[in-house]
Simulated assay, not measured.
Amino acid sequence: MEPFWISQHPICPVNDERILAVGIYKDFTEYMRIQKSLEESEYCFRTLVEYLPESIIKQRNGKCEFANSSAVKPFGKETVKEILICSNSYFIAGRN
């Protein structure tokens, strides 16, 4: 269980009633460090994949989700966007 702090402070009376403010504090330092490290790792991976000379295409459920720029010419397209709109059958059955 991660540490958190609870504090309470009385606030000036309002309409003759005392009000108690309660606050909960959680230290997100470790979470933020992990998040930053993950973002840096993802950036390095994406940069590596984008500049590889081999064609890389990621597909899921019959749809292209990602293609690097090296995948454009071998499949007869002019842009990555054109690759992304192709279905699996385009790559398996041949180009139409």
Rank of each mutant, 00 (worst) to 15 (best):
E54W: 02
S69T: 05
I83C: 02
D16N: 02
P74R: 07
F4A: 01
R60L: 08
N15D: 00
P74S: 10
K77C: 10
Q59G: 11
D16M: 01
S70I: 06
P3S: 05
N15P: 00
Y31K: 14
P53C: 11
G23T: 15
K81Q: 15
S69N: 07
Q59A: 11
E65R: 11
I56R: 06
I19C: 00
I57A: 01
Y25Q: 12
S7E: 15
P10K: 01
L84G: 01
E78D: 08
A67C: 05
S37L: 14
G23P: 03
V22Q: 02
L84S: 02
Y43H: 10
S37A: 14
N61V: 03
A93H: 15
E40V: 10
E54F: 08
D27G: 13
E39W: 10
R46L: 14
E42P: 07
T47Y: 15
I83T: 02
L48T: 10
K81D: 15
P74Y: 07
K36L: 05
K77I: 06
A21G: 13
I24W: 02
I83V: 07
I19H: 00
N15S: 01
E30G: 08
E2T: 07
I85S: 06
V49P: 07
C86D: 07
Q35Y: 15
G23W: 04
F66K: 10
A93K: 14
C44V: 08
L38T: 06
R60M: 13
V49A: 11
G94L: 14
V22D: 01
I19F: 00
Y43G: 05
I19P: 00
E54M: 05
D16R: 00
I34S: 10
K36N: 04
N61E: 10
P13Q: 10
F4Q: 04
R18W: 06
E40F: 13
E54K: 03
L52G: 09
V80M: 07
G62P: 15
L84W: 08
S55E: 15
S89P: 14
E50H: 02
A21V: 05
P53N: 15
M32Q: 11
T47S: 15
F45Q: 15
V22K: 01
P13D: 09
F75P: 10
Q8L: 01
P53D: 14
P10T: 03
S87C: 08
K36R: 03
P3Y: 12
K36G: 00
M1I: 06
I6R: 13
F91R: 04
R33M: 15
I24R: 04
M32F: 11
R18F: 06
I85Q: 07
M1H: 05
C64S: 05
I85F: 09
P74I: 05
Y51W: 07
R95Q: 06
E50C: 01
F28Y: 10
N61L: 06
S69K: 12
V72K: 02
P53Y: 09
K26L: 12
L52N: 08
E54G: 08
I34G: 04
F91A: 01
N96K: 14
L20Q: 03
P10C: 05
Q8M: 01
I92H: 06
A93V: 09
E65H: 10
W5K: 13
A67Y: 03
D16L: 01
F28C: 07
E2P: 05
L52Y: 03
D16V: 00
P13R: 08
I56M: 12
Y25L: 13
A93R: 13
Y31D: 12
N96P: 14
N61T: 05
V14P: 00
K77R: 14
